[in-house]
Design a protein around this nucleic acid. Structure first.
Lengths: 234, 234
DNA sequence: CGCTCTACCGTACGCTGTACGTTAGGAAAA
DNA sequence: TTTTCCTAACGTACAGCGTACGGTAGAGCG
């Protein structure tokens, strides 16, 4: 029946690294990481699987290229005002980039994460570090703060993307969580059962959850900067 | 040569769910997630691959069981003192559990993460929520704070585990990062190149990086609790 | 026209998880 | 003791993965 017609050979220069990366990203955004495969990508392009290996050494290198493309395309927003407000805006922008284009997250989750982040998204990191240095934090605190802020943003985005998988999967997971809470014994877990409604709705609101945490961190940073300003040494 | 002797059939009741989970966890801790496979685990147990399917429907169920085992074994430390100090101790304990036993992290990274976390580690969550409710935060803030604190802890642990893979892989990655920083143009990224030494050493010190961020969050929570106490109704 | 170069591709290998049917060996029954 | 039965352990097989390797077709050029 479906005798798998040998598929006509594609014309000579119908492929390119950019085109492959494009399709890879859209495939990742649509179907997700676990549906991605070299074979699937090739089929999407109407091309034999091994044709991809003309442009990339392998899956790893293709992912690296895709990651670099998106991250180096991205520009942090131009802002002005107090350093903490600017930092907040930059972080929110990163969060939106990640959650709006799940493929990037899935790619970041694969590689050694922030090792490559450092050069691909160097503009954004430069911006973050610059703002933190201008806040009055000493060198070490600024470095740590940069790691905290970026790590928290990536982590929050990953959780958010994981949560609402493709379609209305969010409601299903929420329902499952609600049931788990209901199954807990109120004697052994009084605080948990008491707060379960709020815990459930908090989980539904990813961005709200993120800004809540981000504001906590910013609050801590303001305090630290102020303390460092009054007592610069030690 | 290595004609793969058919392997004598294992005695009748040499297997059990507990034994399988044990070996799975130690295999994960030793070789890591990507070296794990049903075949590898079976060989480790001196057993045919399909024998595992007598006790678990599949890989997923086995992972779930392993996760539950470790998490339900764990008990948060008994503490006393100010709520924020207690919360800090509980979080640190979680972080050490995760970083000390990488298998748990890798398992958490697989499943829907905190959906299951809610019941497997319910004792710990109960403790966190209880402390946060006692701090003076209103219901919604307490729920959000719980999510933030736990998410941050898991995220930080994941990064830490990912970083120093098996052996002295940390130094290799650090060296690579240092080189990336050196390759950046000082004109385009002045702040980044200037702070690169501190950024590099900060990455090396996972626990230090974690406590730094945790203290920022706790600082923000204290402020929020104090503000809520003076003005309970917005 | 014929040659060369290379983008595209088919085949194959070793790996994965696991559905399905088989077998061996201990316990219970005859 | 012999027979039967139940089921834990197993072998085989299949679909799918990444990719090494070698072949082929077709465009550009002498």
């Amino acid at each position: 029946m479906s005798q798998s017609v040998p598929r006509r050979r594609a014309p000579r220069n119908s492929l390119s690294a950019e085109l492959i990366v494009d399709r890879a990203l859209s495939l990742l955004d649509d179907k997700g990481m676990e549906a991605f495969s070299m074979r699937a990508l090739a089929e999407e392009l109407g091309v034999g699987t091994m044709a991809l290996y003309t442009y990339f050494r392998g899956k790893e290198e293709l992912f690296h290229a895709a990651r670099d493309r998106v991250l180096s395309t991205y520009q942090p927003p131009c802002t002005s005002g107090r350093w903490d407000e600017q930092l907040r805006a930059v972080c929110l922008s990163m969060y939106e980039l990640f959650t709006g284009q799940p493929s990037v997250l899935q790619l970041l989750a694969e590689g050694q994460a922030e090792g490559d982040f450092a050069d691909a998204a160097s503009v954004t990191m430069e911006r973050v570090v610059e703002l933190l240095r201008g806040s009055g934090l000493d060198r070490q605190a600024a470095a740590r703060a940069a790691g905290t802020v970026i790590g928290f943003t990536i982590g929050s985005a990953m959780r958010q993307v994981r949560e609402c998988g493709k379609e209305g999967q969010l409601t299903a997971k929420t329902e499952l969580l609600r049931r788990r809470f209901a199954a807990l014994s109120p004697e052994r877990h009084p605080a948990l059962t008491d707060l379960s409604p709020e815990l459930t709705v908090a989980r539904e609101d990813g961005p709200g959850q993120y800004t809540f945490g981000l504001d906590l961190i910013l609050c801590g940073l303001r305090d630290l900067a102020a303390a460092g300003a009054t007592a610069p040494q030690s």
